[in-house]
């Protein structure tokens, strides 16, 4: 087991080295910074971006938008998911909304959001549109997939409703949520940045990406992509840490 984990890590490192090697090779062959910048110029841009005043503010504002949007999505998904599991009416009411959200192109919703909403709110709304259906379905599944045998056992032993909700339903919701949490957090971040590219709020990763693109500063675009990748990785670690604190690993 230990050996196989070591091997997986070795393969992962090898794959990263191959990608970086390929990047170096292609950028050398193409030799046009605008199309594919070199590793060197990307690192220079990265250092410039990080050292520029306001860098931390930009990151924090994007993260804040991301966090607010995600928390709203999560709370709404939990409330509506729980209500839907009890009320057939609310469940049926939610179905067309979810179908609408999953079948309409995201860009169409972003365009409408740009018309209707303030440019600070658009990124959060875009994140919400993508993440809410995933979280809602997960919460609902967590409730509906509760083991019927366990429920019957609880009923026969006359366990009260509060204990059943606290000890069976809530852990079941969290077990289901934890399996999609990392991907949902990352999808949310990506969509918030996409929303920022279009709505151009003042301090935002997306706005800066768009600016680099306008100036045809491709090394700058690559540098921002690296920053997003690092943030995404850190968020993944944070989610993992929270899961460990909540002792989620016991629930598997």
């Amino acid at each position: 087991m230990k050996n196989s984990i070591l091997k997986d890590k070795e393969f992962s490192l090898l794959s990263k080295l191959i990608l970086i090697g390929l990047w170096a090779l292609l950028s050398g062959l193409i030799d046009k910074e605008v199309i594919l910048p070199s590793i060197g110029s990307t690192i220079v841009s990265l250092i410039d971006i990080i050292r520029a005043p306001g860098f931390l503010g930009i990151i924090l504002h994007s993260l804040l938008r991301s966090a607010i949007g995600f928390i709203i999505s999560l709370l709404l998904a939990m409330v509506l998911g729980i209500i839907s599991s009890y009320s057939r009416f609310v469940y049926q009411l939610m179905q067309p909304v979810l179908n609408f959200l999953s079948s309409i192109p995201t860009m169409a919703i972003i365009i409408l959001a740009l018309i209707w909403l303030d440019n600070e709110i658009v990124p959060m709304f875009v994140g919400f549109i993508m993440v809410f259906p995933i979280l809602y379905e997960t919460v609902l599944k967590g409730i509906l997939n509760v083991d019927k045998n366990i429920m019957e056992m609880a009923k026969l032993y006359k366990v009260d409703r509060f204990t059943i909700i606290r000890d069976i339903y809530i852990p079941s919701i969290f077990i289901n949520l934890s399996s999609v949490l990392t991907s949902a957090v990352n999808i949310n971040l990506k969509m918030v940045i996409a929303g920022e590219v279009l709505s151009q709020p003042k301090l935002a990763i997306g706005s800066n990406l768009q600016m680099e693109k306008m100036y045809l500063n491709t090394p700058g675009v690559f540098a921002w992509i690296i920053i997003i990748l690092v943030i995404s990785k850190i968020l993944g670690y944070i989610v993992e840490f929270i899961r460990k604190i909540a002792k989620e690993d016991r629930w598997k």
Binding site: M153, Y157, K158, V159
Partner: peptide
């Protein structure tokens, strides 16, 4: 009050043995 044993053990996976027993005894 009746106790039950089923074909399956019907233990709650995310609770340890003590908490599995406590689950039915709490009331």
């Amino acid at each position: 009050d009746i106790s039950f044993v089923f074909q399956e053990d019907r233990l709650i996976e995310w609770k340890n043995i003590k908490d599995n027993m406590a689950f039915v005894l709490k009331n």
